[in-house]
């Protein structure tokens, strides 16, 4: 699949405007809608459908900060998942503690405690997103000099943390769904 930024005609940036993203997706989806090509040849219709699928996939990727960051790294020819990457021990310890607290809140059916944990993680997630955004603005664009290893390391670290937060918040949603009367 082509690069999602190119596909949606957007300037590649981590700080992409979500409303502009939604507008591009809407406009392109409308233009590619099968109803618009009802009288076209089979090959044109097939092409439009294929592009519509790519546009949806690109939109889905860019909406989520984790997959958006991965797409940016891919454009730069950089790995999103270096195999050597290890999580910071104190971060892991904190996540383990939070996950255990969440498990406890779940077994006690304590919705308030679950929501408190959700808020805490949401705050941390926001801080990590800001850090990631800052790191991305320090990364060079394709064709420029090589990425600075320390900047790249902080991109990878923040990206790793975001994946933990996302897993945590997914779990929160699942628990809150279960707790609904």
């Amino acid at each position: 699949m082509p690069d999602p930024f190119t596909l949606l005609g957007l300037e590649p940036s981590f700080d992409v405007s979500l409303s502009e993203l939604a507008n591009r997706h809407r406009d392109l989806s409308t233009a590619l809608h099968p109803d618009r090509h009802a009288n076209a040849s089979a090959s044109v219709r097939r092409q439009a459908l294929g592009r519509a699928i790519d546009v949806n996939e690109a939109y889905r990727k860019l909406k989520n900060p984790v997959t958006r960051a991965e797409a940016l790294l891919e454009r730069l020819g950089l790995s999103a998942n270096p195999e050597t990457q290890k999580a910071d021990p104190s971060f892991l310890m904190e996540m383990m503690t939070q996950r255990e607290a969440l498990g406890e809140a779940r077994s006690e059916k304590d919705g308030d405690a679950v929501e408190t944990l959700e808020r805490e993680i949401a705050v941390q997630q926001k801080q990590t997103l800001e850090r990631l955004s800052g790191a991305f603005t320090s990364l060079p664009m394709p064709g420029e000099v090589d990425a600075v290893p320390s900047v790249l390391a902080s991109v990878h670290e923040a990206l790793g943390e975001l994946r933990y937060y996302r897993r945590f918040l997914d779990e929160v949603s699942a628990i809150l769904d279960d707790l609904e009367p």
Binding site: N81, Q85, L92, E157, Y164
Partner: peptide
């Protein structure tokens, strides 16, 4: 031992 996989968010 406490280990994690930042690639997927496992701990």
């Amino acid at each position: 031992g406490l280990v994690g996989a930042p690639a997927c968010g496992d701990v």
